[in-house]
Simulated scan of single mutants.
Amino acid sequence: MPTSRTANGTLAASIHDLHKQYVLGGETVHALRGVSFDVPEGDYVSIMGPSGSGKSTLLNLLGCLDTPTSGNFFLGDLDVAKIDDDQRAEVRSTLIGFVFQSFYLLPALTVVENIEVPLLYSGRLTKESRERAISLAEQVGLGSRLEHRPTQLSGGQQQRVAIARSLVNDPRFLLADEPTGNLDSSTTAEILALLDALNREGRTILMVTHEPEVADHTKRKIVLRDGQVQIDERLRG
């Protein structure tokens, strides 16, 4: 059974023998077949693999959007594989920050208001949280765009808002799903530079990507194939 600490320090997450099965058309599909790995706090991990390898299933489990058939997934000492729907919703709103390929900004809201959305949903919206949202907007280079709406922003700027939004609850780790998938090469470089900087500041990041050049920015690469970890390679750090 995994614990919440290693010799190198605290773990942000610990995944142990995760299995996930679906029944489709009367056939049992084994999407994950005993996936195990630890993520120390401050790590920067890319998750790769071909179509059907289990990436999407693993992403849903890490994001507490689904539950495994068996196995354990710890955030600190909390085994989120064993908690109920209400508790998973609480974990999603407080311990995990999400960055998606499609941004998912609300078009009627300003930059600051979009950053505040997780606080609104979790009932933590205060005067102090507005100040935090402004500070995060400035941190991602949007201090002069606070009152702009998504349609007034470039794709890269919209993703910067999404990254700031993912940080507003000070989560245990960021879960990024193809965060540069809708961006051109120049804007991709800007977003990766921002993620790199966040990691240097101590943020733990898990990033699903199919692009090797994006994975090369991370400290560690995990490759899935047929629902199992095929490669778990430390690139640096």
Results as ranks from 00 to 15, higher is better:
Gly227Ile: 13
Glu41Lys: 14
Ser186Tyr: 07
Thr151Ile: 06
Asp86Glu: 15
Gly141Leu: 10
Leu18Ala: 01
Gly71His: 12
Leu106Asp: 11
Lys55His: 06
Ala193Trp: 04
Gly156Asp: 06
Lys20Ser: 08
Gly237Tyr: 12
Glu190Gln: 15
Val29Arg: 08
Gly49Met: 05
Thr209Trp: 01
Leu106Phe: 14
Val112Leu: 01
Thr126Met: 12
Gln152Cys: 12
Thr69Gln: 07
Cys64Gln: 01
Phe74His: 09
His148Tyr: 07
Thr126Val: 08
Pro118Val: 05
Glu113Ser: 09
Lys82Ser: 10
Tyr104Phe: 10
Leu174Ser: 10
Asn60Glu: 03
Val229Lys: 02
Ser93Pro: 00
Asp226Tyr: 05
Ile205Asn: 08
Val45Ile: 14
Ile134Tyr: 00
Asp43Thr: 02
Leu192Met: 15
Asp84Ala: 13
Leu58Arg: 05
Gly25Val: 01
Gly26His: 12
Ser129Val: 03
Tyr44Leu: 09
Leu206Lys: 10
Phe98Ala: 00
His19Lys: 13
Leu175Pro: 04
Ile47Lys: 02
Asp79Ala: 08
Ala133Thr: 10
Leu136Asn: 15
Glu211Ser: 04
Asp177Cys: 04
Tyr44Arg: 06
Thr180Glu: 02
Ile15Phe: 09
Gly181Leu: 01
Pro40Ser: 09
Ser51Thr: 05
Ala31Ser: 10
Lys20Gly: 09
Arg5Glu: 13
Val80Arg: 03
Leu18Met: 07
Ser36Glu: 00
Ile115Leu: 04
Leu78Glu: 13
Ser56Gln: 08
Glu138Ser: 11
Arg33Glu: 15
Ala197Phe: 11
Asn199Leu: 06
Leu183Cys: 01
Arg165Leu: 07
Asp77Arg: 11
Leu11Ser: 11
Pro118Tyr: 15
Leu174Glu: 07
Leu58Ala: 06
Glu113Arg: 08
Gly123Lys: 06
Arg236Thr: 14
Val161Tyr: 08
Pro40Trp: 04
Ala81Trp: 09
Gly227His: 15
His30Glu: 15
Asp177Tyr: 06
Gln87Glu: 15
Glu116Tyr: 03
Ser185Arg: 15
Ser70Trp: 06
His148Arg: 10
Ser186Asn: 14
